[in-house]
Write a protein that binds this DNA or RNA. Structure first.
Length: 279
DNA sequence: CCCACGACCTGCTGGC
DNA sequence: TGCCAGCAGGTCGTGG
């Protein structure tokens, strides 16, 4: 599912469920997700209180009261739902992790494709964590602007679209929002990243921030799997200008529908763009 | 270091 | 109706 707006939407939904609550029980319904649950995963969570939920890039981080951090990545198809612990629970096929909270709520993690990730690590080791240590700037943080982005793109020869998917360049951007931001900024997705002008780089940074915050305000985008905890969908998918619109006139473009949205494959993923606006 | 590509998994869609 | 190729919001490892 999940790029920054979807992950942040899920985090916000988890806050009232987890923060200041004690984990009474952890049940694992298989040995792992993308990789096996590391050694003491369930035992380390068991009995701890969640102090705070944070997000970094596409990771949700829960600070526990035992000096450990619980890391969650939703992969492509991960989602959470809750149900009262009193109810009988019969796990469905892809319900992999079931957490019981001290207030009698049950939190269920479902992930059909199992590209997700869950682990616990000592909080002091966060700065050295392989998945977290190399991440680029958060696009919604104050410091993210044209120069900050330019510094990460400098000298790169790879296509800008591919660079935007690199989490070391900007954190939290995925295929949808990379396409949408490049459209908004009017940049050809195949442009070598390091050759984009200062002015265009500034527009791109602004476009990334705008797309991310607009999507967040809409609860993210639901193509298939993304759900809030109560099962409701995001609705930013209705505002896509180009993503998923191959052959259709792009929104608000100078081509006025005469040209249509086209697709190319970059890095094995589909890029949607307007050949008139994005030059 | 850079980059292209396949692997990891399941489910859905569209074409035949 | 059934089967199968192709594709899907992400990351990681390998090889050139």
């Amino acid at each position: 599912m999940p790029e920054l707006p979807e992950v942040e939407t899920v985090r916000l939904g988890l806050v009232p469920v987890l923060e200041k609550h004690r984990i009474a029980g952890v049940a694992l319904h298989r040995s792992g997700l993308r990789s096996p649950f590391a050694g003491n995963f369930a035992a380390t969570l068991q009995g701890t209180c969640v102090l705070r939920l944070r997000r970094r890039a596409k990771y949700i981080l829960a600070d526990l009261d035992n000096e450990h951090t619980w890391l969650i990545h939703l992969g492509m198809s991960g989602s959470f739902r809750t149900m009262a612990a009193k109810k009988t629970f019969k796990p469905e096929t892809h319900d992999h992790v079931v957490i019981t909270l001290d207030d009698g709520l049950r939190l269920i993690y479902t992930d059909p494709r199992r590209f997700g990730q869950m682990e616990v690590f000592a909080s002091t080791a966060e700065a050295m964590h392989p998945a977290l240590s190399k991440l680029g700037p958060e696009p919604l943080d104050d410091g993210f602007d044209g120069p900050a982005l330019a510094a990460r793109l400098r000298a790169k020869k790879i296509a800008i679209k591919i660079a935007l998917l690199d989490q070391r360049v900007v954190a939290g951007v995925g295929n949808i929002y990379a396409c949408e931001a490049l459209f908004k900024a009017g940049i050809d997705p195949t442009t070598p990243a390091g050759s984009i002008t200062v002015a265009k780089t500034r527009q791109l940074a602004t476009a990334i921030r705008q797309v991310m915050s607009d999507a967040l305000a809409s609860g993210g985008s639901t193509l298939r799997d993304h759900r809030q905890l109560d099962g409701s969908t995001g609705y930013f998918q209705h505002n896509f200008a180009v993503y998923g619109h191959e052959g259709a006139p792009c929104a608000n473009c100078t081509c006025k529908g005469k040209q249509s949205v086209q697709t190319i494959t970059q890095g094995g993923r589909t890029t949607f763009f307007c050949p008139v606006k994005q030059v």
